[in-house]
Design a protein around this nucleic acid. Structure first.
Length: 868
RNA sequence: GGGCGUUUAGCUCAGCUGGUAGAGCGUCUCCCUUACAAGGAGAGGGUCGGGGGUUCGAAUCCCUCAACGCCCACCA
């Protein structure tokens, strides 16, 4: 069936159009960026979504913003590349696959590393297309021919090179260290993957007898089960209570092992009993104390979170889970009457970000990146403005973290990820770090893999062909232009990209970091599957249309980057606007008669000049907002222009008298302005427009430019006066319940020349029968409602229809308001200091306004006098 | 403990460099006027969290208090 303007649907059928249009773009390969192009580059790399993930609102927002910027730059003459891809998401993906295995009662150990990786790769490949496919329903104009995966060959090559280089520079080391251990994931995790939750616990006070003496020292602990790993009791050196005990030996109850009493500044005299048991193998602070005092490390809890069967641990507890062991320990302490006191105690407990299991601080061999030397440049480049955060406040956040940076634990005891390129000599145990195994017969590769963020940290350049710095993509598109992401991954990702980018490419990986707010539910709660408060963007798109979702999300992006409280109904805002654009366009296109549509300034009416002026103000504002990442503002400005100026006035006027060239010109310009936000709708309409087109698609066309020659401020202002007049007649009609079917007559005093040119507008839009121009007050009817508009009086005679008292009342209200304003303005102008110190234009404006009020108030007074 | 954010119309929020407040939704009244009822016309509604200061002038800048939220640190 051939599509004609006449048979377009009266309500916008978003999904139908969106599928058709996206296919049109894809088939024509419009998203493909050309690395040989002469145009200046603009590039964005996607924050790679988890390969096994599904699209959530955060992606939808993030993707919408990236697409808006990409499309805007593309229309502005840039060679724009939005590079998509996925993250292998080590722990998350491995967890998913292990869960699948668990359904068959298997663990990864049952099937072995090789088989497990094979299954996981299948899983990843299967899902990779799903998440990127979902991005397509968002209208994403990314270049899928360049899609990357953090575990693909190129990324692996980059990761290896970075690891080996950092190692050779002495910036990667392997060490025995206390790390955050997740007993469920069976892996170390980094500090920022640990989240703290407040829990109600207890503070137990336990009496440790002094060796060979009568007394005892009472320590306070929240984790009594770790007492078997104690290697000292520490007190503050300035604590007089314990002065005499320092240097003596005490005995751990239940086991009888002897440990020294030491002094360390770290101990807080005022907390608990002021005496602290030191367990270096199971507490990060104790670990530091232990190192300072050269104490041994005794590990009593294993990687499963179970008590170790070793002589230091009470035999009854061997192999027990840490919590069960705690209960038993307490019981035993009670039995031995060494439990002095139990207090309720609120404390923070570390949890694994991925699975919420309580972290066990554990001593183990891990690989670390020495961050401090690397952070230097990353701090510098943000401080000197080479990299800018928007909104700016995130810079402080970033800098604070970077300036207090800790070493980064990068090894994970997982199978899914980049296996660390370190090789152990089977006989000597010597470690060689190299791109390849030096001798597979005698060397075995490290089994640990790298933290997922290690490869994501290289994302902006590993996706551009690095380490081949002569690759065309790297030369054309690196460094990237803008990074768009949420604040929740500034430390995880942004900071590391900046650090690694500077270290390995010597330039910042991007110039601008645009940080948007987080999507929350309508009550401000974080959306999560477990809470069941998520809104599925795929369903919202089905229901409201992709462009509606995009427009709404963009509208919610405030300048300050506030979090976004979202409910599904909010998308009605975007849907209604899409429908409005659709119908107004349909109306304009249906009524075109001329074949040649040429802007001819000699034929411009006052209304044409008004809409062209409004259009150009809008163009200016929209471009300024887009350049400055005020995305929400862009939607507001476009909405206001189209709905309140173009539709409510200009299109309505075109029903009386139309200039088709201007009507279509404005629509064309508006569609281009809107295209980055509502790409499908604008493309569809643009394709239907019978205008000359230099490009095959609106997405490839030029973004509008401000045109001084199409700005007519005087006429625009005059037209606003006409609208005021129409509004005041409508107001009178409404106030006095004049039925729409009844036409009224109007008398106008003043501005005769102006009103004569727009008589037909007044007649139609205000339902006026006759317009009569009068010169003096005597001609004003006694029974009439009236309004003062600028320098004219609009009088609507309403013999028999009007309640005179009500009209007098109405006018008096207006008068009151004016007088109040006048009083305050007059006070200001009489203030000598104001006249002296305020800018001249402000003073002038104030004076003008007073004059205006006086004229208007005078006119109203006349009208009232006439009525009484 | 340190840092950040929020507090504006009934609800959700805009308001960039100070010149006496805006939108959407909701409410009220009227209307199927030949693009759109996902629509049109009109209306009502706010002493911009409290207090103090700077200024001729403060929602906007500074100080302070309060409530709510977030991040970092992690005193057993």
């Amino acid at each position: 069936m051939t599509e004609t303007i006449e048979n377009l649907s009266t309500t916008y059928n978003a999904r139908e159009v969106e599928n058709e249009i996206y296919k049109f773009w894809e088939d024509n390969e419009f998203f493909k960026a050309d690395n040989k192009s002469k145009k200046p580059p603009y590039s964005i790399v996607i924050p790679p979504p988890n390969v096994t993930g599904i699209l959530h609102m955060g992606h939808a927002l993030d993707g919408t913003l990236q697409d808006i910027l990409t499309r805007y730059k593309r229309m502005n003459g840039f060679e724009a590349l939005w590079l998509p891809g996925c993250d292998h998401a080590g722990i998350a993906t491995q967890n998913v696959v292990e869960k699948e295995l668990a359904k068959e009662n298997k663990t990864r150990h049952d099937i072995g590393r090789e088989e497990f990786l094979k299954i996981t790769w299948d899983w990843a490949n299967k899902h990779k297309s799903r998440i990127l496919g979902q991005f397509k329903t968002l209208g994403a104009s990314f270049d899928l021919s360049r899609a990357r995966f953090t575990l693909d060959e190129g990324c692996s090559k980059a990761v290896k090179k970075v690891f080996v280089d950092l190692y050779n520079k002495g910036l990667i080391y392997k060490g025995s260290y206390i790390v955050n251990w997740c007993p469920r994931c069976q892996s170390a995790i980094s500090d920022i993957e640990t989240e703290y939750e407040t829990e109600q616990g207890h503070l137990w006070e336990i009496s440790y007898p002094i060796k060979d003496e009568m007394g005892a020292i009472v320590i306070a602990t929240t984790r009594p089960e770790t007492m078997f790993g104690d290697v000292a009791v520490a007190v503050n050196p300035n604590d007089y209570k314990y002065k005499d005990l320092i240097g003596k030996t005490c005995v751990i109850p239940l086991t009888g092992r002897e440990i020294p009493i030491i002094a360390d500044e770290y101990v807080d005299k005022s907390f608990g009993t002021g005496a602290l048991k030191i367990t270096p193998a199971h507490d990060p602070n104790d670990f530091e104390v232990g190192k300072r005092h050269n104490l041994p490390f005794i590990k009593v809890i294993d990687e499963q979170g179970k008590m170790i069967a070793r002589s230091e641990v009470h035999p009854e507890l061997h192999g027990l889970d840490r919590y069960e062991a705690r209960k038993r320990t307490i019981r035993m302490l009670k039995d031995h009457e060494v439990l002095v006191k139990i207090d309720d105690h609120e404390h923070n407990v570390g949890k694994c970000q991925r699975c919420n299991t309580t972290i066990e601080p554990l001593l183990s061999e891990q690989w670390f990146v020495k961050m401090e030397p690397l952070a230097k440049a990353a701090i510098e480049k943000v401080k000197d403005g080479s990299i800018q955060f928007i909104p700016k406040r995130w810079e402080k956040n970033y800098l604070m973290w970077m300036e207090n940076i800790r070493d980064w634990c990068i090894s994970r005891q997982l199978w899914w990820g980049h296996q660390i390129p370190a090789y152990h000599n089977n006989k000597t145990g010597e470690i060689v770090v190299a791109l390849e195994n030096p001798d597979p017969n005698n060397y075995t590769q490290e089994t640990d893999v790298l933290d997922t963020w290690f490869s994501s940290g290289l994302w902006p350049f590993e996706t551009m062909g690095w380490p081949d710095i002569n690759s065309d993509d790297f030369k054309k598109f690196y460094p990237t232009s803008t990074l768009v992401t949420g604040f929740d991954i500034i430390f995880f990702w942004v900071a590391r990209m900046i650090t690694m980018g500077l270290e390995f490419t010597k330039v910042p990986p991007f110039k601008t970091v645009y940080i948007h707010g987080l999507i929350r539910d309508e009550f401000g709660q974080k959306m999560s599957k477990s809470k069941g408060n998520t809104i599925d963007p795929v369903l919202s798109i089905e229901k409201y249309g992709c462009d509606a979702v995009r427009f709404t999300l963009a509208n919610l992006c405030t300048y300050g980057g506030q979090d976004i409280k979202l409910s599904d109904e909010k998308f009605e805002f975007g849907r209604n606007f899409a429908n409005k654009v659709w119908n107004a366009s349909r109306f304009v296109l249906m009524n075109l008669e001329e074949k040649e549509l040429v802007l001819d300034s000699s034929k411009f009416t006052i209304a044409d000049k008004w809409i062209l002026t409004k259009l150009n103000e809008t163009i200016k504002e929209v471009k300024d907002d887009l350049e400055n990442f005020r995305i929400g503002e862009v939607t507001t400005v476009l909405y206001d222009f189209f709905w309140n100026c173009y539709c409510d006035w200009y299109v309505e006027l075109s029903k009386i008298e139309k200039n088709e060239a201007v009507l279509t010109y404005v629509l064309d310009e508006f569609l281009r302005l809107l295209h980055p936000i509502m790409p499908h709708l604008t493309e569809k309409i643009w394709q239907l427009m019978p205008i000359k087109k230099d490009k095959k698609a609106i997405m490839l066309s030029d973004y509008p430019n401000y045109r001084e020659d199409l700005v007519f401020n005087n006429e625009a202002r005059a037209m606003e006066t006409v609208y005021d007049a129409i509004r005041s007649i409508r107001n009178i009609r409404s106030k006095f319940n004049i039925s729409p079917s009844i036409k009224v007559n109007v008398k106008i005093q003043g501005e005769e020349a102006l009103y004569k040119t727009v008589e037909s507008y007044l007649k139609r839009l205000a339902r006026v029968e006759n317009i009569e121009y009068i010169n003096n007050e005597n001609e004003v009817d006694k029974q009439a409602a009236s309004a003062v508009v600028q320098n004219s009086k609009i009088i609507v005679p309403l013999v028999g229809l009007i309640d005179i008292n009500e009209e007098i009342n109405r006018q008096n209200k207006k008068l009151d308001k004016l007088n109040k304003e006048k009083a305050s303005l007059t006070a200001r102008i009489n203030n000598q200091k104001f006249v002296e110190s305020a800018p001249a234009d402000v003073v002038q404006k104030t004076k003008d306004r007073i004059a205006e009020i006086e004229a208007e108030a005078g006119a109203i007074s006349d009208l009232i006098k006439n009525l009484s």
